[in-house]
Each structure stands twice: as C-alpha cells, then as structure tokens.
C-alpha cells in the first residue's frame, strides 16, 4: 500500500508535527509513505527527523503533481494538509489525478469554510495552530488507515 502526505506552506507549526505523527502511524501499518511539499515544508520534516525514522521518501510538490498528471505514480491513500484556500486547490487536483482515497487534514483558526470545501474526502479537522493534540485525537480515532483503502 502506498500513501502520500501532501503539504503546502508550513507557516502553521502543527503541520510538521502532524505529518510526522501520521507518517509513523502509516509506517506501522506497512504503508510505503511519500511526503511531498514545497522546499520549506520538506526541509522542516527532514530537520525534525534526521535519521529518517518516520520520513522515508520525499519529493518536491510540483514534481509530485506532474508525476500524478503523467500517471508515473499513484497512491492508495493521500493526506492533503489544508489551512488555506491553496490547500483546497491541491485537494481538488489530487482528486482529479489520483485514484487514492483522500484525507483532508484541516487546521488553522478558520476551519469551517475549509471543511465545507473538502466534502467528499475523509476529514480530520481541528482548530489548531501551535498545539497538535486536537488533531492527534482525531487521527487516533481511526483504528486502521489500511482498512480505508479497501
């Protein structure tokens, strides 16, 4: 099973923490996890996990969109990190290009419009900027991510 973590701008601190947390869960379930993001998002991940216990494979966000569009790769499960309108556009793009089941990981201060715009995806959402605990609680509520791909 293959999973993608798609990250946008890392301006909200919870993003990196939650990405590492989800990556760990997915690794433990046997997923092959790829993390895609812009340069800053990937740099934060790699600096937080220097020995690559959680983050095994990374790629540039634009390259990832290109590879999905060209059908060079695909995933079973895709987590899109969303705290702004840009995140919604990436979610819509992944839904167009991939057969993956999509999970919208929504955070920030104004999450209601983002939740509305993510209808059709599995939603993990909490008002969170610095503290990842509310998002962790929702992630822990899913007992098996692999089961969602079946």
């Amino acid at each position: 099973m293959k999973a993608l973590l798609m990250m946008g701008c890392p301006e909200l601190p919870v993003q990196t923490a939650v990405a590492l947390y989800i990556a760990n869960k997915l690794n433990n379930e046997g997923f092959e996890v790829t993390s895609a993001g812009n340069k800053a998002a990937i740099s934060l991940l790699l600096n937080s996990d220097p020995e690559k216990h959680y983050i095994k494979k990374v790629m540039d966000l634009d390259r990832c969109i290109g590879a999905l569009a060209e059908k060079e790769m695909d995933f079973d499960l895709c987590f899109v990190f969303i705290h702004s309108d840009s995140g919604i556009t990436y979610l819509a793009t992944v839904r167009s290009l991939s057969k993956a089941k999509t999970v919208a990981v929504i955070f920030g201060k104004d999450i209601e419009p983002l939740i509305e715009s993510s209808a059709g995806s599995i939603i993990i959402a909490a008002k969170a900027v610095h503290n990842p605990t509310p998002l962790r609680a929702q992630i822990d509520g899913v007992k098996s991510w692999a089961a969602l791909t079946k």
Binding site: I65, T89, T93
Partner: peptide
C-alpha cells in the same frame, strides 16, 4: 481544462 493540464512546463492546480 482539468487539473494537471500541462502548460508552459507547469501542471495546472485548481478546482475543475
């Protein structure tokens, strides 16, 4: 155009 349409060596991102 759909998301992923390639133009100017970029792939379009957005809501279709």
């Amino acid at each position: 155009m759909p998301p992923g349409f390639k133009i100017f060596d970029n792939y379009l991102v957005g809501l279709p």
